[in-house]
């Protein structure tokens, strides 16, 4: 089809730029995740202080400092890994990427342990 040779309105020659797919995809993913977790947060808030009988949460649970730190920290290490990847430095990327995976795995493992502990 002759899209090239058709008459063209004035001022249509500007370069054609669109947002990158990666950025758009990431924003969508974050939206999805926040929609998911907002429901969990609402459920948590709804049940706060509604335990019928002891033991109450404050008696048996401790804030998981280390696991939280590794979860939040992993978002920084992945940024460093990305920095290496953009410069095509695969070795640096691999190192930081594996660190990220390990931190994530620690968080997941600790969560699983926590749950197991609470239930049995």
């Amino acid at each position: 089809m002759e899209f090239i040779n058709q008459p063209v309105p004035e001022g249509e020659e500007a370069p054609w730029r669109l947002p990158s797919t990666r950025k758009a995809g990431m924003i969508c993913l974050i939206l999805t995740e926040s929609a998911l977790f907002s429901i969990f947060v609402v459920a948590f808030v709804f049940y706060m202080g509604k335990s019928l009988n002891p033991p109450y949460p404050s008696q048996i649970m401790e804030p998981p400092w280390l696991a939280s730190a590794s979860l939040i920290g992993s978002s920084f290490t992945i940024m460093i890994a990305e920095w290496f990847l953009k410069r095509n430095r695969t070795f640096g990327f691999n190192i930081w990427w594996i660190i990220t995976v390990l931190m994530g795995a620690y968080f997941l493992g600790f969560t699983a342990y926590e749950w197991h502990d609470l239930i049995y």
Binding site: C28, L31, T32, E33, A35, L36, F37, S38, I39
Partner: peptide
């Protein structure tokens, strides 16, 4: 993407 995650959460 706004409505399906709440379903997944429940």
């Amino acid at each position: 993407i706004i409505a399906m995650p709440p379903l997944a959460a429940c």
